[in-house]
């Protein structure tokens, strides 16, 4: 019954107010017009419960219409918001594009550098970029490519792309040729055999690399946010550029054993690209033909 009381209160108030205003009116010439509007208002108040039944909120609609009539600036405000939103979308897409391009370029350069320095045949280099927030600079930094983090990034003034992971894939034939000692060769073959049983392990590592910026182990949320990963894709352009497709590669790629070459690659990347050691992963591609 509360709505009935409210309704009655509204009617009484509107009727009182309108009679008061008719008294206030300066002269007769305006009276007819004012009376019409006032009686319409009383009618609206009477109809209010029925209006509520039929359309969502008539009062809001009326308010909107009146506001629009009285100050047309209100309508431009929504247009401005729309334009701002579009601009934001454009900015995001260009940001993604530039991140992709940066990743590609960095991967290409790393590949040539590693090949020149070590003489190994590098199949490809995958560089994972992410945006680091200017203020926070913590693990919660945004990841390129996902929408949620773009909204995060919106609140920041300056975001800085940071290399959060590097994966180096070595070609098997060359690698074996370079490895001079038969012991190492022999030491590698068990690895190759193990790779079949150890498929799941590199998978986990790779996912962890995706997010763990400093502490790889402390990143259980890794699976939630895949990063954009760029391959140099020199030999194998069909390879996945996103972590999700890495599962296939794991069948043919196992983590390369620590050796002179991998250490060299690590130190090279560390010195020339300033990438922390734990962000670098080196994989040995398994050759189908090899025993």
């Amino acid at each position: 019954m509360t709505w009935l009381g409210e309704w009655l209160k509204q009617i009484i108030f509107v009727v009182l107010l309108s009679s008061f205003i008719e008294m206030l009116l300066p002269n007769r010439s305006m009276e007819r017009y004012v009376k019409m509007v006032l009686s319409l208002l009383v009618l609206m108040t009477l109809l209010n419960p029925i209006l509520k039944l039929f359309s969502g909120n008539p009062v809001e609609k009326l308010q909107q219409a009146i506001e629009e009539q009285l100050n047309p600036k209100g309508s431009t405000r929504s247009g401005l918001e729309q334009i701002l939103k579009q601009g934001e979308l454009l900015r995001q897409s260009s940001l993604e594009d530039s991140l992709k391009w940066t990743g590609n370029e960095a991967a290409q350069q790393m590949k040539t550098q590693i090949e020149a320095a070590t003489g190994l045949d590098v199949d490809r280099v995958a560089v994972t970029l992410k945006l680091e927030k200017a203020e926070a600079g913590t693990n919660s930094g945004s990841k390129a490519g996902t929408n949620a983090d773009q909204q995060d990034a919106d609140t920041q003034q300056y975001d800085r792309p940071v290399i959060s992971g590097v994966k180096v894939y070595l070609n098997p034939a060359e690698a074996e040729a370079v490895m001079a000692s038969p012991e190492e060769k022999a030491g590698q073959e068990p690895d190759a055999n193990q790779s079949a049983s150890a498929i799941t392990v590199p998978k986990v590592q790779q996912v962890q690399v995706g997010i763990g910026r400093i502490e790889i182990e402390a990143a259980p949320v890794a699976a939630e946010a895949p990063e954009v990963t760029q391959n140099s894709a020199a030999d194998d352009p069909s390879d996945g550029t996103v972590n999700g497709s890495k599962a296939e590669e794991d069948e043919s790629a196992a983590a390369a054993p620590e050796s002179e070459e991998t250490r060299k690659i690590r130190s090279l990347l560390e010195s020339s690209w300033d990438i922390e050691d734990n962000k670098i992963r080196i994989y040995q591609l398994q050759n189908e033909a090899s025993p």
């Binding site: 017009y33 019409m36 509007v37 319409l40 109809l47 359309s55 008539p58 009326l62 009146i66 009539q69």
Partner: peptide, 21 residues
Amino acid sequence: KVLIIVLAVPIIGIIIETVVK
């Protein structure tokens, strides 16, 4: 007078809409 009537236009619109419904 015209401006007063203009104020009434949204009210008339809503009332007519309701009646039609």
